[in-house]
Simulated assay, not measured.
Amino acid sequence: MKNEPLVSVIIPTYNRKNTILASVNSVLNQTYKNIELIVVDDCSTDDTEKTVKSIDDSRIKYIKLEKNSGACVARNKGIEISRGEFIAFNDSDDLWLPEKINSQLDFLYENNAEISFCKMECRTPENNFIHNFPNIEFDRKISYKDLLKYNSASTQTIFGKTDCFKEIIFDATMPRLQDWDEVLRLSQKFSVFYQNKILVHTFFQKDSISTHPEKGVLAMEMLFEKHKDAILSDPAIVESFFKKKASFVCKTGKNPKEEMKMILKYNPSAGTFIKYMLAVFNLYTLFFKIKNSL
């Protein structure tokens, strides 16, 4: 690549002394070398700071927040001080494949895109394979309505022009699904493309925010208020959106009667009627648990 613009990589971290080194090294060992790596420490109380500062590489910039404020605040701080023409994100417990930046930058140029995201391989902390995400099997442009229907972009897969992220920062009030919210808002103004290539390995930690389904319910409610008109304009989006919310409701142990009622109202069918009746008689959550235990 003749033109090698500076790429700013932002890693928010909190108490990840056991995983941050591998995450940082997966960025520093990229085949693309013109990077700055901004590690934003959200007031860790373990040896995360010591671990990061032990790495001898002039491309690293370590910032520690004055108080624990959440990953979105940390990412936004990184965006604020970034100097690169492009920005990418990693999490402090995930790994990039060596060609990630080169591949995503080439893909962005080839498609004249402003934002892109790739596929990732999901694994347990013990490094056992779970599945690949998202389930999209070819490169293509992703619309705002596509993203409303299918939450397909995870933060550590997102790459794009810095100006986009400086204009549309992460919403720190979101309790969960911040990446979905960010890409939805980006897609309303900028061109977003999906690259069907695994460039990230992500690891589900036991203390992850994803283990708190009540936060998922609240996040879905917030997303609905932000995008209500667009969601209700398409029955397929209504069904997809409220099925996702229903899964969070089930994980809290409650029955998703109101979610099934919304689906039935906007996309009536024999199938949606049966699901609604299961919820009415408090059986939907039971079947959900059985299905997800198989």
Rank of each mutant, 00 (worst) to 15 (best):
F203G: 04
F159T: 01
D229N: 12
F133T: 09
K33D: 09
N29C: 10
T211A: 08
S240G: 03
F89A: 04
K261P: 08
K145F: 12
D171T: 10
K291I: 04
T13G: 11
F86H: 09
H131P: 00
F86S: 02
V238Q: 05
S293F: 13
A113Q: 01
I231V: 11
S58Y: 08
P256E: 08
Y32M: 00
T31C: 05
K244R: 14
L294W: 11
K215A: 13
Y14W: 11
V39R: 06
M260N: 11
T157P: 00
E225Q: 12
R123M: 14
N292P: 07
I38R: 03
K161L: 12
I10C: 03
S82I: 01
D181M: 00
L278G: 07
A172I: 09
F165T: 06
Q205I: 04
M220C: 14
Y14T: 08
R75C: 11
C43T: 13
N34I: 00
C164A: 15
N128M: 12
A219P: 02
Y276F: 15
P175Y: 00
K100G: 02
R140P: 06
T31R: 09
E126D: 14
D171A: 08
D91H: 12
D91E: 15
D171Q: 09
F288W: 13
N102C: 10
K291Q: 14
F159E: 06
H201N: 15
N18T: 14
N112S: 13
L97C: 08
D179G: 05
V7S: 02
T252D: 06
L218G: 02
S191G: 01
K289Q: 14
D93E: 10
Q178S: 15
I130Q: 11
I101P: 05
E221F: 00
T173S: 15
F242E: 02
T272A: 06
R75H: 08
I130E: 12
M174G: 08
E259T: 07
V183L: 06
N68R: 15
P98G: 01
T173Y: 10
L218N: 10
L6Q: 03
